[in-house]
């Protein structure tokens, strides 16, 4: 007898904590340096907070608008609503709103500021391509994003990154934004320093944020596997979706794979950089994790 077959992954939690730690350290160093240089960044911080606040509070509407999604009522899409409702009940979440995106590309997304105000959107291409068990797995993945409050975490985590980004962009045009208490004559060098530091902070924090995003994708995959009790269904869905995405000319996964097989170290520099800046883990990495979960479930 055991409490649950669905244990936690302390390794993933540790890596995520590490990324958050480095992110906080980067931000702290950024603040210390800005203060030392006497930059008046409070206006900027307020502006960035307002921007991110708006983005956070209207995340559901903004993302839906950008994706061209339209909300559907339970009468318009009864089966999809019923599926999402059952999964949400199993995950102890309130019912999210449901939206459809009219496109042939199979995909799904979840957004919104928290479990109480969130939307799950799926494309019509997804509904056509995958079977019921796989659809449940994809929906559970999106609901796990909501349960994990990913929009909130990513918004807060990217706060100073946004501040640094604004500094980089604006110091070029509007020197007064970053100018400090020093006199007009001495501010040139300090301004340059602030600009360089901001650029550095922005670059580092962007990489860290991407890593965080990848880890949160893996966490959502785990959540989906546990909720549906079927890691294999999510694996099948991911394979199908990425296979269909690969048919779009820009991204041919198989070609890249075939080429890298000839190298002793399979990670070419391009792939390495692609991994580093990607917001999603690679399909292989996700399938490996799901395989591990399946193995855990099979253990006596």
């Amino acid at each position: 007898m055991r409490a649950t077959r669905f244990g936690s992954d302390s390794g993933l939690g540790f890596r995520m904590g590490l990324v958050l730690f480095f992110l906080a350290a980067t931000y702290l160093a950024f603040l210390v340096v800005l203060t030392a240089l006497g930059a008046d960044f409070i206006t900027l911080a307020v502006f960035a907070a307002a921007m991110l606040g708006l983005q956070y509070f209207f995340s559901d509407r903004l993302v839906l608008m950008a994706a061209g999604a339209r909300e559907v009522t339970p009468e318009q899409a009864p089966e999809l609503h019923a599926r999402i409702g059952r999964l949400a009940a199993g995950m102890d979440l309130p019912m999210p709103r449901v939206a459809l995106i009219e496109t042939d590309v199979p995909n799904a997304l979840a957004t919104g500021r928290g479990p109480g105000a969130s939307v799950v959107a799926v494309t019509t291409g997804l509904l056509e391509r995958i079977d019921d068990a796989e659809l449940d797995a994809v929906l559970a993945h999106e609901l796990a994003h909501i349960a994990n409050r990913d929009v909130m975490v990513m918004t807060i985590a990217s706060f100073f990154s946004t501040v640094a980004f604004f500094l980089v962009r604006w110091l070029v045009y509007v020197p007064s934004v970053g100018s400090g208490r020093r006199g007009k004559d001495g501010s040139g060098g300090a301004l340059m320093a602030v600009w360089l530091i901001s650029l550095l902070v922005w670059a580092i924090s962007s990489l860290l944020l991407r890593a965080l995003s990848r880890y949160r994708e893996l966490a959502a995959d785990r959540g989906a596997a546990f909720t549906t009790g079927s890691p294999a269904s999510l694996a099948a869905a991911l394979t199908k979706i990425s296979g269909a995405v690969a048919r779009i000319p820009q991204r041919d996964l198989r070609e890249v794979e075939a080429a890298s097989a000839f190298f002793i170290i399979p990670v070419t520099s391009r792939e390495f950089w692609a991994t580093l800046v990607s917001t999603h883990p690679s399909l292989e990495q996700r399938l490996r994790q799901l395989e591990r979960i399946q193995a855990e479930m099979e253990r006596p």
Binding site: F6, G7, S8, G13, A219, G223
Partner: peptide, 12 residues
Amino acid sequence: LDILLGRSSPPK
């Protein structure tokens, strides 16, 4: 912690 690190196990 659950929020920061992602809910690692489903509700019992």
